[in-house]
Simulated assay, not measured.
Amino acid sequence: MNTLKLWQRCASTLGGKWLFAKMLCFKAPYFSSISPQFVELRPEHCKVRINKRRAVLNHIGTVHAIAMCNMAELAGGTMTEVTVPATHRWIPKGMTVEYLKKASSDLVAIATPVKTNDWSEAGEYKVRVDVLDDMNDLVFQAIITMWVSAKKTVS
């Protein structure tokens, strides 16, 4: 089952969003370190939430920069997964980040494409991820460059 269909099936049931996050973290265990909660997922859009809790804090009591990077990569990657055609594959190629304000609350990451992509040839696909605090202030921003190409066909 593809990721979008799995999300649609899970999101409509009690505890399904929690289960979806657990399944994704089982496949990519590093993401479990931030205990993500998926809020929305559709082509060209993903919204992920994390709670401010001890496991994601730095020495000054704010959400750690790397926890926000992890959150951005999860939101951006999941959005890319449900956006690119099933005939294609993708991999993160790079990420540029900006830390704009101390992250002193729970956070929400919103991933969207920078522009519409042409899937006819392999190339870079840029994803913007904005991370907002409880006051809806932008605390972190990332541009993730994904490399997208057609899957190899087996002859």
Rank of each mutant, 00 (worst) to 15 (best):
H64M: 06
E44V: 03
S33R: 07
A28G: 00
L74V: 12
A75W: 04
P43M: 05
F38D: 03
A21V: 05
G76Q: 07
P29T: 02
A75F: 08
T78E: 09
H64N: 13
V56W: 00
E44Q: 14
G15D: 10
V56M: 01
T80D: 10
M71G: 01
T62C: 13
T62F: 12
F31N: 10
N58C: 03
A21G: 12
V63Y: 01
G77Y: 10
M71R: 00
A28R: 00
M23T: 11
R42N: 09
Y30A: 08
I34T: 01
N51G: 04
A67H: 04
M23C: 08
K47I: 14
N58K: 09
I60P: 07
A28Y: 04
G16K: 13
W18P: 00
M71Y: 01
F38K: 06
S35F: 02
V39C: 05
K17D: 06
N58H: 09
E73L: 15
V84C: 12
A86D: 15
T80P: 10
Y30N: 00
N58S: 09
K22D: 01
G16M: 12
L74E: 03
A67L: 03
R54W: 13
A72Q: 06
W18A: 13
G61N: 08
M71A: 09
A21T: 08
F38V: 15
I34M: 02
L57C: 14
C25E: 10
A65C: 13
N51K: 08
S35N: 09
I34H: 00
T78H: 03
R42D: 05
R54D: 01
V56E: 00
A28C: 03
K47W: 07
A21N: 07
H45K: 14
